[in-house]
Design a protein around this nucleic acid. Sequence first.
DNA 1: AAAGTCGGCAACCGCTCGCGG
DNA 2: ACCGCGAGCGGTTGCCGACTT
Length: 321
Amino acid sequence: MGRAPCCDKASVKKGPWSPEEDATLKSYIEQNGTGGNWIALPQKIGLKRCGKSCRLRWLNYLRPNIKHGGFSEEEDRIILSLYISIGSRWSIIAAQLPGRTDNDIKNYWNTRLKKKLFGKQSRKDQRQQQHLARQAAAAAGDGQIKQEASGSANESDGLAPGANYSWHHHHSMAVPVHPMSAPMVVEGGRVGDDVDESIRKLLFKLGGNPFAALPAPPCIPPPPMYEEEPSFAAPLAHAMPLNEGGMQCSSVLPALELDESFHFNQVKLDGLECLFGMGDHHNMRWNEVSPLVCPNNAVASSSQGMQQYCIAEEPADLGMQ
DNA sequence: AAAGTCGGCAACCGCTCGCGG
DNA sequence: ACCGCGAGCGGTTGCCGACTT
């Protein structure tokens, strides 16, 4: 015997919402609010919908000031940074992006950002690239170039067809620039600093050490201006030795170093494992994640996830004690 | 032109959490 | 302390339009 359903499935309408239903729900909530009871709401206003469905429709679509699509680079970075830090906590991520819903961000991550991050190009992008390659080949009139251009760029890298990697294809190995270590550079200056600061504050608020949570990969200086399409990738050829008398850094960061850089931040990183050499991680709760995010700090645990706080090393700098 | 495939998005499902009795 | 209920969340599914062959 399972749990009782929240509504009578037989008498409840499913599927896309009609404009009339939208109008009914919207006008009622705007005038009366939800009344604190979503289950009872559809009956009250004569909608043959499940209360959960009404709630979802309101939150994801009808609510004022909702933004759809058109994610900016800055929003991309926030999403990525938070995903790396806290995993697929879409509601928390959405809370940092005014006008965005968790569902929207989740869809965006699953359909676009993940591909963008991991370099899989859309067919449109692939077509553009192939078109350019053909043009270049035609201009060069070189048989060998033509042959390479007709295939996808990744084939020469030994990657599976269709899995175009847009991390810099010129380099033997590529890693994503750490979002916190590489503020986006735009004309006239950096725009990433404020975002970074807000994310650090958020992480601190959530119980993580904002300094340890997102360690900069060793020996990788901030990237130069994006040359082509903006991406979180950066060429490792830029990774030159930083300190003259000290440790020498190779131009290609060993996978081991990457692993060490991120080993204490093993939130569920769907898809990131392949980059950072992580194993299979099951979904973790915040009280599991927190010690990983701030391993060197004392953690004051309480019974439920978000209630615990790390003693960060430099809270004063954040003004958030 | 038609069939097949892919990508994006809205919505659903089922689970956990939190609160009140 | 326990139980039941509603809210909230994240994963998954299904539809539909765009694109490819």
